[in-house]
């Protein structure tokens, strides 16, 4: 799999660190109760299909970005702003 780093261009997946489901809404710092943080931290949509996720180009420019990838095919739609 090749991942399009928005800064460096396409690179092998092995240069990246995965950061999980990016569609989850992280409660703003200092807000949110235990339930909100639980749901954010511990539950996942985990779709078989389009998935927005965090990646970091950890062996490159170290930029974090959001990527849209289809989990049924591994086809990458592109970087999501």
């Amino acid at each position: 799999m090749k991942i399009p780093c928005p800064h460096c261009g396409e690179r092998d997946v092995s240069e990246f660190r995965y950061g999980g489901d990016a569609s989850r809404q992280r409660p703003a710092h200092g807000t949110g109760d235990l339930k909100a943080w639980h749901d954010y931290h511990f539950t996942f949509t985990n779709p078989k299909g389009p998935h927005t996720e965090h990646w970091q180009h950890v062996l490159g420019c170290r930029q974090w970005f959001r990527l849209s990838r289809n989990t049924a095919t591994n086809v990458i739609a592109g970087v999501v702003e």
């Binding site: 660190r17 970091q56 950890v58 974090w64």
Partner: peptide
């Protein structure tokens, strides 16, 4: 990576 994540993705 955690600090970078917080700064680049959330804060």
């Amino acid at each position: 990576s955690w600090l970078e994540y917080l700064l680049q993705c959330h804060w």
